[in-house]
Write a protein that binds this DNA or RNA. Structure first.
Length: 869
RNA sequence: GCGGACGUGGUGGAACUGGUAUACACAGCAGACUUAAAAUCUGCCGCCGCAAGGCAUACGGGUUCAAGUCCCGUCGUCCGCACCA
């Protein structure tokens, strides 16, 4: 038995069948044990799983199996984020129905996931395109609508001309659609929105409670919500513009610098700019030019600041004798604040660049500490720091904070056109979430448009609004919009002729509550409150950093909205979040373009790696290491790897070496190393099983060597448990390698004492149990070789003997002047005086002292000794 | 431009709250076993040096008995971004 190679293919299939037959991973809501909900971001059924999935799900499975062994009732479900455009693209390109395409992909990918041996509760599986799921989503929509959380408004939208759909602001990247890459156009459409901005403050504040989220993601969410406190101020026009406004409203976060104002800036999209542009062709041309600049921060930062003097003038609110010119400027956004600013060049870099270009006044009003007010000047760099206000009449001598408050108070009391001239305001960058998509393969928005009754929600008894199957993709645009019978219905209110809403929901809606549905996936309501509240929040959520903002923020919104509509009791869906790194691979190029690793053979000549084509031996250029992608052909198919080496090898390799939050490079050497280790463990356990019978008794006196081995075993258990808790899988892997090294040596030493037998047996059993979360099939096989008849998948985590973590003697490094010179072994309870004496007796120390007394001896208990000479 | 993270052998990386730098793995080298290869096993593997020893955690300073870890500056890499007034 022991000499046989471990046959992963045979063993993995066998254990998977046994686990499934016995239903060991099916979770019951009524199980009284403490709950643990671990969830990996569910996949889009694109066709085949990729290595990124393997890494993601291997991590989640380690946590699930570890927590299960610790006695938790673990929920570890899987489903499919199944609506979305690729299905429609496939329909257009290959004449496949999106539904067939999607469900076929799901079947393939489910099979691929199953051979990974993940401890998933497949009985809870669903796809977001299942009628059962989106029917509940429609009910949520109607509840949100009734609660005022969903509404319609006409708005300028980002129109993707390739996908023929609307994109959220967040989905437009550098002026292009995030999926299609097409240049986005502006269009006016009536759209459905979710009122996420109602929760701006709460979503922001609650970030503080998410202490098991990466700081990076929390920061990104804070910045996305973008809270800023400031003042809305009205500036009176000297002569009103043709559009008739009496005053210009601006928003500022620096009212303290108001006396440094030298001009006003309008966004090119500001209504006043527009109105003026209609009469001024030169301004119209300028506005058009501004709209052509890219929307990316980098493009605009490097773009030259430009403006156009409108000829309008406004009066300074604190000194009526000052008149300020009004420019249309290319660096002011309509979407933030009021789309207009007052500019203080001395204390804002953009304003300064602009003022220098157009020869406008630069008056410093904040004096940095240590500067002389008579000589302080601003060169090419604006001063944005703190200081004392000067050149500012009644504010002179105040701090920045005091001045902000003073200006606000004064202008609030002052009135212009019968209203206070200023108003304190909190602004958020976060805007409402537009969810309408002009697309077939999504969840239908359950409303009916009636010419007499306007928008009528589909009555509950008529739900769900099913997607019709008989559709065609011969023309671009939404097939629902031209569906003959589906679209035309009677109005539920008046019975007259009416039309269905033909827009479907953004697929981010689907993924915003699936974690809640998993808690009771077959319920006739969206959630079962008891089940949802018992399971949520998700204890550990694992997925890619690319979802750091949108998906996570929308899910947080949904939890709040579902609470408001009575579907949930919690507001934060994910207690712990972990964002894993990507899987990368070397790239290869031949003259024909990118070459797949499967077609390349690596040879080493004179210590230099060369790549050649397997087919004909022709040379291939080795390129940079990149994220695995179809476009660069540097992918490795998980199924191929699993067929060759087994799922455990693939899982082990994905968990070893690289810290999980960082990228990991897939290499053939690495996989083989992992595979060799699987074989090594198998041989080692086999040998031990032969040598030490299962009922090896524990003798009263174990002997020193056996105690040492036991220490190593239990120390490994202690450290590895901590590593898994922290998701430091690479460290956990290293500890198991160490234990195997130690155990191999102990076995090779040939000590046949009864104590050693006991210690070796224990080490082997612990090793196998510790490996189980990562390499579950191999562990089951080893467990059975060791004579166990129960399943390791349902066994408890091994018990830790705390006593073994503490040594009787400790070895202290001894430093002389901070450099290590010797080791000192002393009893654990040795006193400081004993240690000092023993230190001075060391050869290395006395040599360094050369007869002189030491200046100082520092003893850090159980850490180190440092002798200062 | 702004914000953030990071920089350790040939490579991926360890090093808990300042306390033995380089654990573990990959690659490489030498040897054992073998007719041979594969597999396996053993040993070596930061740099200089015969050695004693010295030098090394991007670079330059600083704090400390002690710095990969803390502080200041420089260089470099990566990530995020919204000209946010």
């Amino acid at each position: 038995m022991a000499s046989e190679r471990y046959n992963a293919r045979e063993a993995e299939a066998r254990w998977q069948e046994i686990w499934e037959d016995k239903g060991v991973f099916v979770t019951h809501n009524e199980d009284p044990r403490p709950k643990y909900y671990v969830l990996e971001m569910f996949p889009y059924p694109s066709g085949r799983i990729h290595m990124g999935h393997v890494r993601n799900y291997a991590m989640g499975d380690v946590v699930a199996r570890y927590k299960r062994a610790q006695g938790f009732n673990v929920l570890h479900p899987m489903g499919w984020d199944a609506f979305g455009m690729p299905a429609e693209n496939a329909a257009m390109q290959n004449k496949v129905h999106p539904k067939d395409w999607t469900y076929q992909n799901i079947a393939t990918m489910r099979g691929q996931l199953k051979i990974m041996g993940l401890s998933l509760d497949w009985s809870r599986e669903f796809a977001t395109c299942d009628v059962d799921y989106y029917a509940q989503q429609q009910r949520l929509f109607l509840d949100f609508l009734a609660a005022g959380l969903a509404y319609r408004k006409k708005s300028k939208v980002n129109w993707d001309p390739v996908d023929m759909t609307v994109l959220a602001n967040e989905q437009v990247i550098d002026g292009r659609g995030w999926r299609s890459g097409a240049l986005v156009e502006q269009r006016d459409l009536t759209q459905w929105f979710f009122r996420i901005s109602d929760f701006s403050e709460d979503l922001l504040e609650a970030i503080d409670t998410l202490d098991r989220w990466p700081d990076k993601v929390r920061l990104m969410q804070r910045n996305w919500i973008g809270r800023s406190e400031g003042l809305k101020v009205s500036f009176e026009f000297i002569a009103p513009p043709p559009s008739g406004e009496a005053a210009l409203e601006i928003f500022t976060t620096r009212p303290d610098t108001l006396f440094g104002a030298s001009f006003m800036g309008l966004s090119p999209d500001h209504p006043i700019s527009r109105a003026l542009g209609e009469k001024d062709p030169k301004l119209a041309a300028f506005i058009e030019e501004c709209q052509k600049i890219g929307t990316s921060a980098e493009a605009i930062e490097t773009a030259e600041k430009k403006g156009y003097d409108t000829g309008l003038r406004v009066r300074h609110p604190l000194d009526p004798s000052i008149e300020l010119p009004v420019y249309v400027a290319n660096f002011i956004l309509m979407g933030y604040g009021t789309g207009a600013i007052f500019a203080c060049p001395a204390h804002d870099q953009r304003d300064l660049d602009f003022a220098r270009k157009y020869g406008l006044k630069v008056t410093p009003v904040v004096l940095p500490q240590g500067e002389d007010p008579a000589t302080f000047n601003v060169g090419d760099e604006a001063y944005t720091g703190d200081g004392t206000i000067f050149n500012s009449a009644f504010m002179d001598g105040m701090s920045v904070a005091e001045a902000k408050d003073a200006v606000a108070s004064r202008l609030e009391a002052q009135s212009l056109g019968g209203k206070p001239q200023a108003e304190r305001q909190v602004n958020y960058r976060l805007r409402d979430w537009g969810i309408s998509r002009q697309r077939y393969w999504g969840c239908p928005i359950p409303v009916i448009h009636c010419p007499t009754c306007d928008v009528v929600p589909v009555p509950a008894e008529d739900l769900p609004v099913r997607l019709p199957d008989d559709i065609d993709f011969d023309k671009p645009g939404n097939p629902l919009d031209r569906h003959a019978t589906w679209k035309h219905v009677a109005c539920p209110k008046c019975g007259g002729k009416a039309e269905r809403e033909t827009d479907t929901m953004d697929t981010f809606v689907d993924s915003s509550w699936y974690f809640a549905r998993f808690t009771d996936p077959k319920n006739a309501n969206p959630t079962d409150r008891e089940a949802a509240d018992a399971w949520l929040p998700v204890d550990q959520y694992i997925g890619g950093i690319e979802h750091a903002i949108l998906h996570l923020l929308y899910s947080r919104f949904f939890a709040r909205a579902m609470k408001k509509t009575g579907h949930l009791g919690v507001i934060e869906p994910f207690q712990g979040l972990f964002t894993q790194g990507m899987v990368t691979h070397e790239t290869y190029r031949a003259d024909g373009g990118w070459v797949s690793p499967a077609d390349v053979r690596i040879e080493e000549r004179d210590g230099v790696r060369h790549a050649v084509l397997v087919a004909d031996g022709s040379p291939v250029t080795i390129g940079s290491i990149e994220k695995m992608s179809k476009s660069k052909k540097n992918t490795v198919d998980p199924t191929d790897i699993i067929e060759t080496y087994g799922a455990d090898t693939a899982r082990w390799f994905m968990l070893s070496d690289s810290p999980p939050e960082r990228d990991v490079e897939w290499t053939e050497d690495g996989v083989q190393g992992a595979w060799r280790f699987m074989q090594r463990v198998w041989r080692l356990v086999g040998e031990i099983a032969e040598r030490v019978s299962r009922d090896a008794a524990r003798p009263n006196d174990l002997g020193e060597a056996a105690v040492e081995l036991r220490r190593a075993t239990h120390k490994t258990l202690h450290a590895l448990s901590n590593d898994i808790e922290q998701l430091a899988f690479n460290r956990a892997v290293a500890r198991l390698y160490e234990l195997v090294n130690t155990l191999s040596k102990a076995l090779a030493a040939g000590d046949r004492a009864a104590g050693m037998d006991f210690a070796i047996r224990e080490a082997a059993e612990y090793l196998v149990r510790m490996m189980a979360p990562m390499t579950p099939h191999l562990a089951e096989s080893c467990w059975s070789v060791l004579g166990h008849e129960d399943l390791l998948a349902t066994a408890a985590w091994p018990a830790l003997e705390q006593d073994l973590l503490v040594e009787d003697t400790i070895t202290l490094p001894v430093q002389v002047n901070g450099k290590k010179r010797a080791d000192l072994t002393v009893p654990r309870e040795a006193s400081k005086e004993d240690i000092e004496a023993a230190t001075l007796a060391l050869d290395a120390v006395s040599r360094a002292l050369d007869g002189k007394p030491p200046r100082k001896i520092i003893v850090v208990p159980s850490r180190i000794v440092n002798v200062v000479v």
